[in-house]
Amino acid sequence: MSRFLLLLATLLLTLNAHADLRVFACEPEWAALARELGHDHLHLTTATTAQQDPHHIQARPSLIARLRRADLLICTGADLEIGWLPVLLRRAANPHVQPGKPGYFEATRFVTLLDVPASVDRALGDLHPAGNPHIQTDPRNFLPVARALGERLAQLDPARAEDYRKGTADFLRRWRAALARWNPRARKLRGLKVVTHHKGWTYLGHWLGWQVVARLEPKPGVPPSTAHLAEVLETLKRQPAAGIIRAAYQPARPSRWLHERTGLPAVVLPFTVGGTPQARDLFGLFDDTLSRLETLSHE
């Protein structure tokens, strides 16, 4: 009997020592990155899908319950989740993932942010004072974030630190190889003229060097006026574009409206992992983004 108890205790201890690190990712791209670095050591849960607008999430009970048990929270930061993450953090009251703790990881802290507004006036829309948070549309941003995240995983789960470092090094090698494939394709898209919905593509544009001829939603969070849409049509007469770009989560109506009036092809980009059937992981995300944009440049 006592031997059985000893065995059971040892078993429980072993199980505990090898328990998965529970990771709560705010967006699919960070869940995908964590999977690349930590493989099956992580128990992953993703708060949003590629079909959801990450600004407009509610602090649902299911998210509070999941954050309650997390060891590590990976979010974009830069106020992207300002409407819901503070509520989740407060309601879940999980000491491991509060800001400032090792279990709190904000990806935007490791990347130079673009579009930092000179002044923050809501008349200009729902601006992000820290800068544009949609860093996942530039593949180069994953290098510093992956390095920082790999170190964080190693810090939180020292028993498997070596595995995480190996996983990170392996990912960085494969990612650089992929960049070497993507960069020549990106260069061919340089100067591509596009119409976008809102400023979600700043980083992709920065990488590709495309040219945004017009924006359908010039002020973030504020729907466009008819006067503005007329202005967009006017602009397009003077400066023709190759196509209209929207993210998988954005409503189709504005780009359909413009497509009907101008005949410009409307293209859905995945925006994040899961946004299109091809964007199954981070590599697929950029393979597919480039393929879809190439259909425009060939027309």
Binding site: D79, E106, P144, R187
Partner: peptide, 28 residues
């Protein structure tokens, strides 16, 4: 597009930013 900035520049950016942004916005 300029050449892709790799390790050196990224590390610099990383250092600069971990110093410049002490915590999430509104934390203080």
């Amino acid at each position: 597009m300029p050449a892709i900035p790799l390790r050196g520049k990224l590390t610099l950016v990383l250092l600069l930013f971990s110093a410049a942004l002490p915590a999430a916005q509104n934390a203080f």
